[in-house]
Design a protein around this nucleic acid. Sequence first.
DNA 1: GGGAGTGTATGGTTTTCATCGAACAGTCGG
DNA 2: CCGACTGTTCGATGAAAACCATACACTCCC
Lengths: 111, 111
Amino acid sequence: MAERASHRAAPEHAHPDDVPVQTALAALADPVRVTLVRELADSAEWTRSCGSFDVPVGKAALSHHFAVLRGAGLVEQRDEGPKRVNRLRREEFETRFPGLLDLVLREDPTH
Amino acid sequence: MAERASHRAAPEHAHPDDVPVQTALAALADPVRVTLVRELADSAEWTRSCGSFDVPVGKAALSHHFAVLRGAGLVEQRDEGPKRVNRLRREEFETRFPGLLDLVLREDPTH
DNA sequence: GGGAGTGTATGGTTTTCATCGAACAGTCGG
DNA sequence: CCGACTGTTCGATGAAAACCATACACTCCC
């Protein structure tokens, strides 16, 4: 038998190489999205579902933010049962935008 | 005699060290402002007045954009006669946000 | 001091974006 | 197959930001 693929539409991803700088900067200019990226950076890959993040927005807005992050080449998603798990595209993003992710992740708390 | 200072209010500047990452990213997420920064990078310091830039906005909006750039620690301004001349704060900004300015300036035309 | 040139401030319009509530679609376990 | 769970989509709302036209302030030169 053919393997049982998900009947759900796979999320559309943009590879960092295809992302304009403007798009990347705009994606990282939102505090909620930065929180998502930071928490993701502190977690093992493919371990965090979309709903597992501590952000003060409803799930509709959350879904939107993840779409923006995908479109900026920052996050990759995969369906795992009923959940959609995430991975930060560290290396690919670093190659396309050297230093940018580090700037956001290493923000000194005094700022 | 006391020297003849300008009777005009000096523009308020933010030093890059006091600027949050969010502010810097938001400032660089606008295409008009990026154009200003790029043209400024290609000119000698203190040689470009505000009105000398080729951007498709009125002078009111232009004035606003320069205020944002000042607030992000990207641009320094000085009054010179009736004109207000500009300077890109390359080194200071680079020290505070390593690599960020280069990312914006070296944007590959294929993107 | 009048007038041209340059930039800022103000008020109002338009656009963009983040957000929510509710409805919907897919997955899994009983 | 039903119900709980997860996430997306849709429509609407509110806030933020970009923009313009106008009016104003300052500088310089004649």
